[in-house]
């Protein structure tokens, strides 16, 4: 048998040994294949967004496609000053206020619901099904339902009323699901130990459960904020006379054909990144203060 044949005979066996064994030897061919796929995905994920961020910095001659024409902040100024782009500033303002409201309510209510779900209680399956139903129901249908309901009850729809509720019907199930995952890492013995040491139920929540779960609660807050800040379908029929930002963007996509649309994209993305950065920073800070794996042993 020639050396080449021998090598060929050995190859499959060796490949088999290496199959996803995480810490030994060279990388299997699948690594390179999947790494290529991953790179492709990330490029496709970020590429288009980066394009519009770049295009938003064109000057007055700018159009919707490349090549880039000039370099200025013209379209940002245009965005906040032109009548035809609508009340962007007001929409920003409302969206942020609404998102903060939604965040606070989502964190508190999801936390309480997750506390309830730690033990079985009569009707827990019904509540869970309702929650899943609320999560998957078509947003626009739900929004119309809320609108008709408010109409029938004689209440005016508004971003701080009907839209707030409609958004919560979407952010809360999400928040509770995230809380489930967070809670699964909570050791019930901590609670028992606190009770054993004389803590009252409220002290247990304040001194043990909330501080231990704090990073998870920040994650829920991040979900609440961004889901609300970006919510469209449920808000469309419930926001009342004053638009939120996604509704503003939606109307712009239908009638604005200038790079101010892209400028708006750039601005909202910057805000999103500030929020993500703050939240991740808070989580990292908390984990660091908790100092996992510092004293090596």
């Amino acid at each position: 048998m020639s050396a080449a044949q021998q090598a060929a005979a050995l190859a499959p066996a060796r490949a088999k040994q290496r199959a996803i064994s995480p810490s030994r030897g060279g990388r299997p061919w699948t690594f390179y294949l999947l790494a290529t796929l991953f790179t492709f995905y990330v490029v496709a994920l970020y590429g288009p967004m980066i394009c519009i961020y770049i295009l938003s910095f064109q000057d007055v001659r700018g159009g919707l496609v490349f090549p880039m024409k000039g370099l200025s902040l013209h379209w940002f100024v245009d965005l906040f000053t032109q009548v035809r782009t609508g009340d962007v500033k007001g929409a920003f303002d409302r969206s942020i206020k609404l998102a903060i409201l939604v965040t606070i309510i989502t964190v508190v209510v999801s936390f309480m619901a997750a506390m309830a779900f730690r033990r079985r209680f009569p009707g827990d399956n019904v509540v869970f099904s309702l929650m899943i139903g609320s999560l998957v129901a078509p947003g626009l249908v739900l929004g119309i339902g809320v609108g008709l309901l408010f109409n029938a009850l004689g209440i005016d729809t508004s971003w701080y009323g009907s839209a707030l509720g409609a958004q919560l019907s979407w952010t809360l199930p999400f928040g509770v699901l995230v809380m489930f995952a967070v809670m699964s890492r909570f050791n019930p013995a901590w609670e028992e130990a606190a009770r054993d040491l004389g803590a009252t139920p409220w002290q247990i929540i304040r001194l043990v459960i909330i501080p231990v779960l704090a990073p998870g609660l920040v994650a829920v807050a991040l979900f609440g904020f961004t889901l609300s800040y970006d919510e469209f379908a449920r808000t469309l029929q419930t926001a009342g006379p004053q638009n939120t930002l996604p509704l503003e963007i939606w109307s712009m996509t239908l009638n604005v054909t200038s790079p101010s649309l892209y400028a708006l994209g750039t601005v909202t993305t910057i805000i999103s990144f500030i929020i993500i950065g703050t939240a991740l920073g808070a989580i990292v800070l908390m984990q660091k203060r908790r100092g996992a794996r510092v004293g090596g042993h």
């Binding site: 288009p48 967004m49 961004t226 970006d230 469209f232 963007i249 909202t268 993305t269």
Partner: peptide, 12 residues
């Protein structure tokens, strides 16, 4: 990107 605007990501 999940935390950024869906509409913006679409028009991009």
């Amino acid at each position: 990107p999940f935390w950024t605007s869906n509409i913006i990501r679409m028009i991009s």
